[in-house]
């Protein structure tokens, strides 16, 4: 997980995260209102992120042509070190062959989206498709290095979804930052939203009509509950979606870089120790871990001064 911090620290100081927030056609007043409000909130969150450039399109503004133009613009501007985060909110359909994101005017297919994203040079890419039938888009959107998250496991889960609500919640709830490093990674946000979505159906005693998936390699079919200790979702784990609080400030203050690097070195030792946990006596593990945790805490105390 600490590699996230490493990426944030080393590359992002010069890098930009491009956010594309898309709100599709609601079809009914309550959906129109909901999608619009969600895209507005996403716009606010992403525009407030450090070194970000957000493009938000919803309702009549989110036409096929505008979306295509937006990606073309990003493709011109973005560099390899940059990141691209695309979020789709709305209704989707799947006819057994092709996924379509419902828009005012002609719909856009997953293949078209994939094609428009292809020229964007940013190596780190995340696409979050929260629509109904979004599982049907997975095959077309997968690409090496790109994390794709869908609200449904297949194109046949056609009912409207609640995943978007919890994805947004993940971006504003500090609890989603499970490792408390002030970065919400794609994996953390996914886990948060997936858990909350499942609990929504459980507590309402409703049969779950959406089963989210995360896929982060071109060959992966996607994981429902990815486990990085088994090598799953390693790209998603390293893909930052948003930065929180002090890290934003720290990123802007070069004088604390030395302390940050020192902290990172110890955090790497912690990661290594965890990997050796099963092979060492429990007491020794606990002693070593405790010492490392105390060191990190003391460095943080210095950083916070």
């Amino acid at each position: 997980m600490k590699h996230v911090v490493f990426l944030i620290m080393c590359a992002p100081l010069a890098a930009t995260t491009f956010y594309v927030n898309l709100g599709g056609l609601g079809g009914q007043e309550d959906y129109e209102t909901r999608f619009k409000a969600q895209v507005e909130e996403l716009d606010k969150l992403t525009k407030g992120a450090p070194q970000s450039k957000a493009f938000s399109l919803s309702g009549a503004m989110a036409s096929k042509a505008k979306i295509k133009d937006t990606f073309a613009e990003i493709a011109k501007e973005a560099k390899a070190d940059d990141a691209l985060v695309v979020t789709m909110i709305g209704h989707g359909t799947f006819d057994g062959v092709e996924y379509k994101f419902n828009l005012v005017g002609p719909d856009v297919t997953a293949k078209e989206l994939a094609m428009w994203m292809l020229p964007v040079p940013a190596k780190r890419q995340l696409l979050v498709n929260t629509t109904s039938a979004s599982g049907g888009s997975l095959a077309d959107l997968r690409q090496e290095g790109r994390t794709v998250i869908t609200a449904t496991k297949s194109g046949t889960e056609k009912l409207s979804t609640v995943f978007a609500r919890y994805w947004l919640e993940a971006l504003r709830d500090p609890q989603a930052d499970a490792d408390k490093n002030d970065v919400i990674s794609a994996l953390e946000a996914y886990r948060y939203a997936e858990t909350k979505t499942a609990k929504y159906y459980e507590s309402n005693k409703r049969l779950a009509t959406e089963h989210p998936l995360l896929a982060d390699t071109s060959s992966s079919a996607g994981f429902r509950t990815p486990d990085p200790t088994k090598g799953e979702a390693m790209v998603a784990m390293r893909m930052p979606v948003l930065l929180f609080g002090s890290l934003q400030n720290a990123a802007k203050s070069p004088e604390k870089q030395a302390l940050l690097k020192q902290r990172e070195a110890i955090e790497l030792q912690i990661d290594n120790l965890k990997l050796r946990k099963a092979a060492m006596p429990s007491d020794q593990y606990r002693l070593e871990m405790r010492n490392l945790l105390l060191q990190v805490a003391r460095i943080q105390q210095e950083l916070d001064k």
Partner: peptide, 22 residues
């Protein structure tokens, strides 16, 4: 606190409490 920080070594409130207890 050990359990908390093992999961999230950078969790500041937990770090603070750990140092206080220490």
């Amino acid at each position: 606190l050990f359990q908390s920080l093992e999961l999230a070594p950078g969790f500041k409130p937990a770090q603070k409490l750990l140092l206080e207890l220490e």
